[in-house]
Simulated scan of single mutants.
Amino acid sequence: MPPSRFDRGTRRIALCGLTTLSAVVLLFSYRTSTSPGLPEEAAGGPDEPGPAVVPAAAAPVAAPGPVGKASTVRAWSGVVTGPVVPIKWGEVQVRATIARGRIVTVDVLRAPDENAHDRALSAAAVPVLVRETLGAQSARIDMVSGATFTSTGYVQSLQAALDRTGTA
């Protein structure tokens, strides 16, 4: 006749199995953020001025109105510099050149460069971030794996600069 209670070893195996099953269920039920929201803009201190804006002539551009009629909007052109964004490994700052409302170039003025690892990481991440920005024509871009802090600082500085121009 089998014993009415589990012995110690069987109880331990059952407990480990249920714990593992619970962990797997919790892992697969975890919802990651899918919102395209950006990190909040870095707050500048009292000694840090806002982004510098160097406007050029704003040219009128025909854009479709709400009913399909063309209306004239003024697309911003010029060079705008974002604020210096402090990150864990240094500072990031970008300058964007915008022509008729389109981002044509992005220059990274500051990136982490304190040691060889920082320089190598920045050298690999910055071209990817710039390419993504030019493709997306906004600061809503993917982060570079392995350079999350640099990517976050880049996006914050770029978004602050674009906010000053009225560009996406």
Rank of each mutant, 00 (worst) to 15 (best):
L15P: 04
A96T: 01
K88Q: 13
V80E: 01
L129I: 06
E41H: 08
A52V: 12
I103V: 11
T81A: 07
T105Q: 12
I141W: 05
A147Q: 03
E41K: 06
W89D: 14
G17I: 12
S122C: 06
R5S: 13
P60G: 08
G166C: 07
A96M: 05
V84Q: 12
S22Q: 07
I98S: 01
A116S: 12
V108F: 00
I13V: 15
F6Y: 10
A147F: 02
A99E: 15
R95W: 01
A139W: 02
P51M: 02
V106F: 02
T150G: 03
V54H: 14
A139T: 03
P127D: 05
T20S: 15
T10L: 14
A168C: 08
S35Y: 05
V84L: 12
G44W: 00
G78T: 01
R140Q: 12
S33H: 08
L158A: 03
R12D: 13
A120P: 01
E114F: 11
E48G: 04
P55R: 07
A161V: 01
K88H: 10
P66S: 10
A63R: 14
Q159D: 14
E40N: 10
S138W: 06
P64E: 15
V67D: 15
G45K: 02
V144K: 03
S33Y: 07
R140P: 00
G68P: 07
G44E: 07
V25G: 08
S4I: 09
P60W: 00
G68R: 06
V67E: 15
D47Y: 04
A160F: 05
V24K: 00
L109I: 09
A123V: 04
I103F: 02
T105F: 01
T148W: 00
R11M: 13
V85S: 05
R131A: 15
K69Y: 05
G65Y: 00
R31H: 11
S122A: 14
G78A: 04
T32I: 06
D163R: 13
D47W: 09
G135I: 07
V84C: 08
A62R: 08
V126W: 01
S77M: 06
K88W: 04
G37A: 15
R110T: 07
G146P: 03
A56V: 06
L162H: 01
L158N: 03
G68C: 09
A123C: 07
S22M: 14
L134Q: 06
V144M: 07
V24I: 15
A58Q: 10
P2H: 09
P46A: 11
